[in-house]
């Protein structure tokens, strides 16, 4: 079968598998999904015989129905983008996700692109000056950055820059009182709040990108076509951009899109540390509050983003690297 068709057909299948897994795993958790809700409802004074109907109204799921029935109802809900009602926040899960996802995407995309650009530049310089003092120092630095997890940086930044020096806010995505508009005040507030999380999230990834780029760069610099280009008298600039950089960065492209997907899951701890109202923040809240519908919603969104990211990477790589469509790439 054709590769692209196969690849596209895989997406709904993967999402189905993920939905099933979340559904199943959460059923296995102690207490079950609706114990909390049932308790709450009972406390609110809802008569015991009406509790199940209320739950059904809220969550699209009949708690007394057999498991397969619940499963099917859940899947139908997912297909209709109806993920139920958040128990702790008392609003539809989809609304919570719609509110928090943009912040998380903002954090992840900005920090990943920053990380990629800075890492590539450092790695390229290292490759050009292979064996120099700069190369040795930055290699050591890169390995250090790789081995320290990002949340350590996050905690250190938060402690020093936000609490001690009070240069940055310690939570939230914007100042209270600043309305969402296209004003300068709003944007600067957003950047001010996002600066620390982005910095912490970026810095830890620079190391591996730089080392990766350094390796690729050195490999490409040793290729015959670079030598031939030099003999042909091309300018150093052209050789650096069209020959070395392009061929060294290409194999990293798939990795970049994958990374965006993976880092989406990594925001859980980051947003918790900075009290940043993104997806991860709400997810922790949901876990703490036994808010199963919200939890399942968050899981689902994170995995779907990852799946789509990988899919886009696979599809577009052929367009970016002319060799892929012919199926004879020798890179990686």
């Amino acid at each position: 079968m054709n590769y692209y068709l196969k690849r596209t057909a895989q997406i709904p299948l993967t999402i189905l598998a993920v939905a099933t897994l979340t559904f199943g795993l959460i059923r296995l958790l102690p207490g079950g999904p609706f114990t909390q809700l049932r308790l709450e409802l009972l406390q609110q004074g809802v008569p015991a015989e009406q509790v199940d109907t209320r739950i059904e109204a809220l969550q699209n799921i009949r708690p007394d129905a057999p498991l397969w029935q619940q499963y099917l109802d859940y899947l139908i809900g997912v297909a209709q983008l109806d993920l139920g009602q958040s128990i702790s926040l008392n609003e539809p899960v989809i609304d919570v996700l719609a509110r928090s996802l943009p912040w998380t995407v903002f954090l992840v995309v900005t920090s990943t692109i920053l990380m990629f650009v800075v890492g590539v530049v450092i790695g390229a310089l290292q490759a050009y000056w292979e064996g120099s003092r700069f190369d040795r120092l930055t290699s050591g630095g890169s390995i250090f950055l790789m081995s320290v997890p990002y949340y350590i940086f996050a905690v250190i930044f938060l402690f020093i820059l936000a609490f001690q020096l009070q240069l940055f806010p310690t939570g939230n995505a914007v100042d209270r009182g600043v309305d969402a508009s296209l004003s300068l005040a709003y944007f600067s507030s957003v950047l001010h709040h996002a600066a620390l999380p982005i910095l912490a999230f970026t810095i830890s990834g620079i190391g591996s990108t730089a080392l990766n780029m350094r390796g690729n760069g050195i490999q490409v610099l040793g290729k015959e076509y670079v030598e031939v280009a030099r003999l042909r008298g091309l300018s150093n600039n052209r050789i650096a951009t069209r020959y070395v950089a392009r061929n060294a960065i290409l194999p990293m492209y798939t990795g970049l899109l994958l990374l965006i997907g993976f880092r989406l899951g990594g925001t859980v701890v980051l947003e918790e540390i900075f009290s940043y109202p993104g997806l991860g923040y709400y997810m922790i809240q949901a876990v703490n509050a036994n808010d199963y519908p919200l939890m399942m919603g968050c899981f689902l969104v994170i995995t779907v983003t990852l799946v789509v990211g990988v899919y886009i990477a696979d599809l577009t790589y052929g367009l970016i690297d002319p060799r892929i469509s012919a199926g004879d790439s020798d890179e990686y």
Partner: peptide
């Protein structure tokens, strides 16, 4: 300027002498 204008060179691996992209 001397290279390629006066004396030029052909290498063994043509595949590796062209920029693949």
């Amino acid at each position: 300027q001397f290279r390629w204008e006066e004396v030029s060179m052909v290498f063994q691996g043509a595949m590796s002498s062209f920029n693949p992209t």
